[in-house]
């Protein structure tokens, strides 16, 4: 079992990588109404420079938005409407169960690096970034951070985040949905080894109409197991024991099952408009962020 890594801030993402991220922004496939005025256009009419529509003047309207040119031509008062620019909620749900702290390269470190990158992109673009770690329910949270000055705090929080407990995504999803009513982007980072099933958890998130992205993180040891012989396997999370004799046939069967499990999860997500991405921790995390997330339209 891998030891608990004491990750430093600069270990999660390097300044050079940060500079690459500076040019990126988190994009939502859905347009949400934010709480505060921000840097994103919303459906709400507001005060940005982006023209949206006209409407007839009614008493009490701000005279500053009257279109005087039209008044001159038509002798009627029309009010110019502009799109409101609002902030975007970017939430990262990070599976911190014991099973995540596994593999070489380590899944926990890998997930936190991706979380850090996405969080950083959100922060510098004045999005409201919240980071939740969950195992058997929400374990820690850092909510509503916005602006570059929060960078160090976010990184420190991620670096110090412990991996512990038994995964219970259903509970975590429920708690998250209750605490976080605002729509926005939700990025779930997990190995999805859920004995209770992932469906309930995703179901709670879908209920809030979030723009959900699921990143399925597995280590090479899980994808290509190197186990052989008569073994007594112990589950790192719940100490569940499986006595097996591993041979080529069983390995093949395991691989088939793993593949089927991934396909099942992907199909579940796709049917419900959830963006699903599977990754092996051997794939460099910057590649995931810079290439795959861009392709999936999470960032641009």
């Amino acid at each position: 079992m891998a030891t608990q890594p004491q990750t430093k801030t600069n270990e999660l993402i390097t300044p050079a990588f940060m500079r690459k991220l500076d040019q990126l922004a988190v994009v939502s496939r859905k347009i949400f109404a934010g709480k505060m005025r921000g840097e994103r256009l919303t459906k709400r009419r507001g005060e940005s420079a982006e023209f949206a529509d006209y409407r007839s003047y009614v008493v009490g309207d701000d005279l500053r938005f009257l279109d005087w040119n039209i008044y001159a031509r038509l002798d009627q008062l029309f009010l110019k409407l502009f799109l409101q620019e609002e902030d975007l909620h970017v939430s990262i749900l990070l599976d911190c169960s014991k099973s995540m702290n596994w593999g070489e390269p380590n899944k926990w470190l890998y997930s936190r690096r991706i979380a850090a990158a996405i969080a950083y992109i959100g922060i510098i673009n004045f999005d409201r970034v919240s980071i939740y770690s969950y195992a058997d329910g929400i374990q820690s949270e850092l909510t509503g951070v916005r602006g570059r000055r929060w960078t160090a705090k976010v990184m420190d929080a991620l670096g110090a985040m412990p991996s512990n407990g038994v995964s219970n995504f259903a509970l975590a999803g429920k708690q998250f949905a209750m605490r976080h009513p605002q729509p926005g982007i939700v990025l779930v980072l997990s190995d999805f080894f859920e004995k209770g099933g992932y469906e309930d958890g995703l179901h709670f998130l879908l209920g809030r109409n979030y723009d959900i992205h699921a990143l399925h993180v597995l280590s090479p040891e899980e994808i290509e197991p190197t186990l052989m012989g008569d073994l007594r396997l112990t589950d790192v999370e719940d100490d569940d024991v499986a006595e097996i004799t591993v041979g080529r046939a069983l390995i093949n069967r395991y691989k088939k099952n793993l593949q089927a499990y991934g396909q099942e999860l992907k199909a579940y997500c796709t049917r419900r408009g959830i963006s699903y991405l599977f990754t092996n921790t051997e794939v460099p995390f910057d590649q995931i962020v810079l290439n795959y997330f861009r392709q999936r339209g999470l960032i641009r």
Binding site: M1, K98, S99, M100, W102, G103, D191, F193, K195, S219, E222, L227, G229, D230, L231, R232, L233, T234, D235, V236, E237, D240, V241, A242, E243, I244, A249, L250, R253, Y254, K256, N257, L258, Y261
Partner: peptide
């Protein structure tokens, strides 16, 4: 009883499912 070597894995549930399949 067969002496089995103990290994810790992130999750046993896929292994158990494979054994059942087989």
């Amino acid at each position: 009883k067969l002496k089995r070597s103990v290994r810790v894995v992130p999750s046993t549930f896929l292994w158990k499912r494979s054994v059942e399949d087989l």
